[in-house]
Computed example of a mutant assay.
Amino acid sequence: MNQKLGRKKSLSRKVIMAGEERCVYCADPPDTLEHMPPKTMFKDRYRLSGMEFPCCEPCNNGTSAADLVAAFMSKIGPLIGKGDWELADNHRQAWMLRKKAPGFLEELFGPKANSEPILFKTDGGVLLDRVQIRTGPIGSACLDVFSAKLGMALYREHIGTNLPLTGAVNAMWFTNVGLGQDTADTLLSILPGLNALRQGKSDSLGQFAYRFNSDGVGMFSCLASFHKGLHVMLFAMADPELYDIPVVIETQRVTRPGGLLAMMPKPARPHNWNIPLLGTP
């Protein structure tokens, strides 16, 4: 399969928007610039250039809560602890999460949170006491949206055209320590290409990278990693009926262009603005 890398050169907004007739995520005309992954995904919001796409205002702003949730979950890795920048970054972004995704933090850390203690095995074979974070309905819906956005954006990046309106993204996500090593090894064996944001001698490896495969025409697949806390496996297909996509987990979500806003969770009223987060910065 074609291992075409995404562009690495920084382009101006005028060049990116020129001649575009539709949003990268739906059929509407674009009037804003979308960054995927978003700036909030990166340390101190320092994001290298690349992977910027023409987008309509409803898709861009209407799914911003999904971007915030994904950025927050990506920084809850199994080895994150007091003094780490990821923890401090999440505390700084908590106020925006309460505003844009009310109820998310309550379902993650509140008295009814669905988290559990586990033993986490490090690369060196050491067993550590950790907590597996499980998202509730708000967080899960936002991660579904983020994963679908990522698939449509990467399809555009590597295929060179927007995912057709008849196309689809088949995606699944894993948070915290939810992606087993055996599953990861199986997926990586069929995804040989490695890519990330690159600018000069800098790259986003360690914060955002993905293994991928593509036929260069109408199919793109990848396993993307965001820090140590969020992984997304996806297949983006121009004609879903042509491809026999394996079912890795039954909860994988199929999304077509134009379907993002309907997937966003309905706003919930926050129950406790002073709810403690995971650890202290």
Rank of each mutant, 00 (worst) to 15 (best):
M1I: 04
G6R: 15
K9R: 11
L11K: 08
L11W: 13
L11A: 10
S12H: 09
G19Q: 08
R22E: 12
C23V: 15
C23M: 13
A27N: 09
E34L: 13
P38E: 05
T40V: 15
S49I: 01
E52F: 11
F53N: 05
C55P: 13
C55N: 10
C59E: 15
G62T: 12
T63Y: 14
S64K: 11
M73E: 15
S74G: 12
K75I: 06
I76H: 15
G81R: 09
G83S: 14
L87A: 05
D89V: 00
N90V: 12
R98G: 04
A101R: 11
F104Q: 05
F104I: 10
E107W: 08
V126A: 15
R130W: 08
R134D: 00
G136T: 10
G139V: 12
S140M: 08
C142T: 07
G151Q: 01
M152K: 00
A153N: 02
Y155W: 03
I159G: 05
L165W: 04
G167F: 00
G167S: 05
A168S: 10
M172T: 06
D182H: 08
A184P: 05
P192I: 00
L197T: 04
R198C: 04
S202H: 10
V217S: 04
G218C: 00
M219N: 00
L223Y: 03
K228I: 05
K228F: 08
G229K: 13
V232E: 01
M233I: 05
A236N: 03
A238W: 03
P240S: 06
E241H: 06
L242C: 12
I245Q: 01
V247R: 05
I249T: 07
E250Q: 12
R253D: 06
G258P: 06
G258I: 05
L260W: 11
K266T: 00
A268L: 10
R269P: 02
P276C: 13
L278F: 14
